[in-house]
Measured scan of single mutants.
Amino acid sequence: GKMTGIVKWFNADKGFGFITPDDGSKDVFVHFSAIQNDGYKSLDEGQKVSFTIESGAKGPAAGNVTSL
């Protein structure tokens, strides 16, 4: 299901970062391709987001990332 969290950091040049889930679980990798907006796909440190957990090739990653 949907989770919420805070963006820990995001490197716009490399197109990835990490989200710290509100439930205290392990930080989740986020790739820019998972960001659900029409414009420039980037996130800001400290931004609140909702997301799902998808299993990627390198382990769990955030999917369906939407800013709240």
Rank of each mutant, 00 (worst) to 15 (best):
I35Q: 04
D22Y: 05
F51S: 02
K2M: 13
D13T: 15
Q47F: 03
D13M: 15
G46L: 04
A34N: 10
V7E: 00
P21D: 01
A12Q: 12
K14H: 06
G56Q: 10
N64D: 15
K58W: 05
G39D: 10
D23P: 01
A34T: 08
A62H: 01
L43E: 01
K14I: 07
N37V: 14
T20E: 14
D44V: 14
I6P: 00
H31I: 00
T20D: 03
V7L: 03
N11G: 03
V49Q: 00
M3Y: 11
T20H: 08
V65E: 02
G15S: 03
T52R: 08
Q47E: 15
K26F: 06
T66S: 11
G24Y: 06
I6F: 09
W9Y: 09
D23T: 11
T20S: 13
V28M: 04
D38C: 13
F10V: 04
G59R: 09
E45N: 09
N37W: 08
A61G: 06
I19H: 00
I53W: 10
D38M: 09
T4R: 08
G17Y: 03
G46C: 04
G24Q: 09
G17V: 03
D38R: 12
V65T: 02
A62C: 06
T20Q: 14
V30P: 01
N11L: 06
D44N: 12
F51C: 02
I6V: 15
F16W: 15
G63L: 13
G59M: 05
G5H: 00
D38G: 11
T66E: 13
I19D: 00
A57I: 12
K2H: 04
F51K: 02
Q47T: 10
N11P: 00
A61S: 12
V30I: 05
V28L: 12
V28H: 03
I53V: 14
I35K: 03
A61F: 15
V28N: 02
G59T: 05
E45A: 15
G56T: 14
S25Q: 11
T20R: 15
Q36S: 12
D22V: 06
F16D: 03
D27T: 04
Q47P: 00
P60M: 10
G17K: 01
L68H: 10
I35A: 04
F32L: 09
V49H: 00
V49S: 01
S25V: 06
T66H: 13
